[in-house]
Design a protein around this nucleic acid. Structure first.
Lengths: 338, 338
DNA sequence: TTGAAAGCGCTAACAG
DNA sequence: CTGTTAGCGCTTTCAA
């Protein structure tokens, strides 16, 4: 009735626990005959070694934590699938943790992961603090951080940086080439590091393309559809109204698109809109959304690979720096003017 | 440099491991003075008890597995948040596992969870097999199953049944009341149990509202936007073309909506569309989507509560049956005809 | 009010 | 080629 243990197997096969352990792990030669006896006993009893007991010795749990802002943000699902793809192949299981953009909750989640002795944590929440990473690293837990920076981070964790510059620069150049001069940006909440980064790169891209960044209209949004709608309302009261918008994510871009259409504009003729993320929906709405694409699934895979590398290297693992590029995807939500 | 253990704390405080353990767990009275010494030592060393070691004794890991089809299906994120809300409060962590609608992969994931000694598994994948549940239960792991049935399931697991009947019946009645007589259904893949259920309930609802179910048009889709588009193409070639569509989920409903608009139809005048799930997007597109709403977050919470109940009851926990209702949400994608 | 010692299920020296 | 033994970090009798 109780769990079958290695001892039960040993008894049944008439050998010692040691021998059973060795046939299980192929960690020393065992006579074929005894090996068969052991295997038979294992099957008859339906024995499965306890990972918990193993972990106590090996200091490895074959688990990792994945800290994200909020699963219902469509940026994450593909990333998660990428992480899982790599993890599954190595028999790793993933604890999913939503910070809900709350730093305090994030820290608690990290502590809980520490208590569970995960082998590593993937920090992918846009609400980040150095404290979270420290909490992990102090407890010998490896860390990979996505799209966030801090002076003291480099010695603690491997990092994946998203090169927004490539994609945003292409996007802005495209708009300029098709005649736009008044290009607004709808940013994410500016207390988020990644929102700052995107905004600054946008401004830099304006300059590079011969526009005056100091005149640029920046509207702060909430990264959701509703934020895009509200941003459009502000936008539509400007005079002159910008003829193009680059949003910090696709959801807000869709919000703009839909609000504009509801307001009677003819899209993309009256307003060009560019998103960022390339979520599934972007290609499926009409007009389909031009956007700056992130290789989300690849980011997930890469992050998990980095983590597994660190884990296999042990304590003094080298911290890697990876950069992933973004690319502009031209669809139907932009149009030449003038 | 190494992990701080209970022994280190004991040494530092000049007491025995036993005493440290007892102040930690408040499991027997300890003199205030020694208690303070222990607490001081714990803080100075930054000691955190190892859940792994505890689990070896308690047979509890404070972890649970959540088996879903695919995180990128917008049905799941809210459910996950509900599960996590309850889990977090009890210091439980959740392993997220995507079956990718693959039974074999599902079974492997369950086995991996068994090896990790999770305290329970929430089965929410639409690709299910009794074997998965058996694998869990045979290894003393509690199971909660969502929206799936099998003759032998009841004695193994607690179940949550979604009462599609209430919502779908309301939806069909609404359509009939506003004059529709030709109502088609776009189902999910009919090898999925839940797709069968929804289809049958739809047919029953037709009968109840005085329509001839045997004449009903049923098109099998893939539960994704693309499936909705393809379904519309088939639909548009029928003569007479149905004037209303009830889709098995919102994504397909949106696919129909958008494909119809691209084909030049004026919605909702030329075609009434009803979805199922009430995903976030449903209320945000225009025309906004009338749909049969599921209390997704509530389902997640309820499921996790059922699981925690079973866990606290131990081996012979009673298996509960919970049913959640669905409700029709009227928005703008339906219109009176004739 | 406290400690010593056994043991959870497993692995890995060390011995034979 | 195989077994004995000592832990991994913790909880929990049992004894003082």
């Amino acid at each position: 009735m109780n769990r079958v243990t290695i001892k039960d197997v040993a008894n049944r096969a008439g050998v010692s626990k040691t021998t059973v352990s060795h046939v299980l792990n192929k960690t020393r030669p065992v006579q074929e005959e005894t090996r068969q006896k052991v295997i038979k006993a294992i099957e008859e009893l339906g024995y499965r070694p306890s990972q918990v007991a193993r972990s106590l010795i090996s200091k490895r749990t074959k688990t990792a934590g994945l800290l994200i802002s909020d699963v219902s943000n469509p940026f994450y699902p593909d990333v998660i699938l990428g992480v899982e793809e790599i993890a599954f192949a190595e028999d790793y299981s993933i604890f999913l943790c939503n910070t809900n953009y709350d730093l305090e909750r994030g820290l608690k989640l990290v502590q809980s992961l520490v208590d569970k002795s995960v082998d590593g944590i993937l920090f992918m929440s846009s609400s980040m603090s150095l404290e979270m990473v420290q909490e992990a690293v102090e407890n010998q837990i490896h860390a990979v951080v996505l799209d966030w920076e801090d002076n003291n981070l480099e010695e603690l964790a491997s990092t994946i940086t998203i090169n927004f510059e490539s994609g945003i620069q292409q996007a802005v150049r495209h708009l300029v080439e098709i005649g736009h001069k008044q290009i607004a940006h709808i940013s994410g909440p500016l207390n988020l590091w990644t929102a700052q980064v995107r905004k600054n790169i946008f401004l830099k891209a304006l300059e590079r393309n011969g526009l005056d960044a100091s005149q640029a209209v920046i509207i702060e949004g909430d990264l959701r559809i509703e934020g895009g709608r509200k941003a459009f309302e502000q936008l539509s009261q400007l005079n002159p109204r910008p003829t193009a918008v680059v949003a910090a994510n696709d959801l807000m871009a869709l919000g703009v698109l839909w609000a504009a259409r509801n307001a009677g504009l003819d899209l993309p003729r009256d307003l060009s809109v560019i998103g960022l993320d390339d979520i599934d929906l972007a290609s499926k709405v009409s007009p389909s959304l031009s956007t700056v694409a992130l290789p989300r699934r690849e980011i997930g895979k890469q992050a998990m690979r980095l983590l597994l590398d660190m884990i296999s290297q042990g304590k003094q693992a080298t911290k890697s720096r990876v950069m992933v590029d973004t690319t502009f995807v031209l669809r139907q939500s932009t149009q030449r003017i003038g």
